[in-house]
Amino acid sequence: MLHKPSRRTFLKSSALAGLVPAFGPASTLVDPSDADSATDTGLVFLFQGDSITDGNRGRSADPNHIMGHGYAFSIASRIGADFPDRDFVFYNRGISGNKLADLQKRWSTDTLDLKPDVLSILIGINDTAATIDKSAEASTLDQFETTYRNLLEESKRAYPGILFVLGVPFVYPVGKRQENWKQWRDDTAARQVVIRKLAADFDAVLVNYPAVLDKAISQKNAEYWLWDGIHPTVFAHELMAREWIRQVSHRLKFLRKYRPFD
């Protein structure tokens, strides 16, 4: 049976990790003599969201495909390979096409039942799409915030030591997204504001994917990174994985190993 750390241990480790200063030079790694660097063992990492997280993941126990083919896969493969002694467990429960309301319907079985220690969520772009399409399932910004907040509160009640990692959704004027571009841009931006607010309210790690993609697009055209303005290419998924690890390393000290990303 998988050994899981006490929630108190996880909270202590996360709190101390929050005091880590900005990333140093590429040679800086975790000091093996640091007692706190070995406290996080048996952690369960859960990635939730829509198609960007789904990554065409397998729906069976086949370990070759279970994490999909996106940023969640890159994060899990890297951490799992570098810390085999930590007995970490990784789940991907992203489902293509999901809106926040869809996530809510399956929250109990696909989130709470998995007992996550680190819960990473990237959701919102399909809510924007529903608004633009004038779908009956479209959510207002107030509904979006209330539902998202309720899910985080429910998770916090179940697992007080949980670490939330909230991803900021994104969209770019590529392909069909050029149609109704102002609506795509403005509605997504409004939901970004909501997620930033929730991240602050729940002391979550905020992963600002748009900032990373904006920088990448300044060096190479948007189509190289996002083939349809929403879905990342292999290259953009790698940038997302790097940014996820970079930001989470401020809270989980053992991830300081990856400071060379800066």
Rank of each mutant, 00 (worst) to 15 (best):
V30C: 10
L114N: 03
A76K: 05
P116E: 04
A61W: 02
D87R: 05
D110M: 15
L46Y: 02
G124A: 07
G70K: 06
V30S: 09
A15M: 11
A72E: 05
D102A: 07
A81Y: 07
S108C: 15
L103H: 12
I79Y: 03
D117W: 00
V30T: 13
V30E: 11
A76F: 00
P5K: 01
F45G: 06
V44P: 09
G49T: 06
S60V: 11
S51C: 02
L114D: 06
S27G: 09
P32Q: 09
I52L: 11
I125T: 11
K105N: 15
V44Q: 03
R106S: 10
N64I: 15
R106L: 12
L119H: 09
F73D: 04
G97W: 01
G58E: 02
L11E: 10
T131L: 10
L16V: 14
L119C: 13
Q48L: 10
A129T: 12
D50I: 01
Q104N: 15
N126E: 08
D110T: 14
P5D: 07
D117L: 00
D82K: 07
S37D: 02
D117K: 00
T9Y: 09
A61P: 06
D40I: 09
V89S: 15
I66A: 12
R57P: 07
T128I: 07
V118C: 02
S14P: 04
L16I: 11
T128V: 10
V20W: 10
N126V: 02
S14E: 08
L103Q: 08
S60T: 10
D62G: 06
N92P: 11
Y91S: 05
L43V: 03
A129S: 13
A26P: 04
I95G: 01
I75N: 07
T128A: 04
S6A: 10
L19C: 11
S120F: 10
I121N: 11
R93G: 07
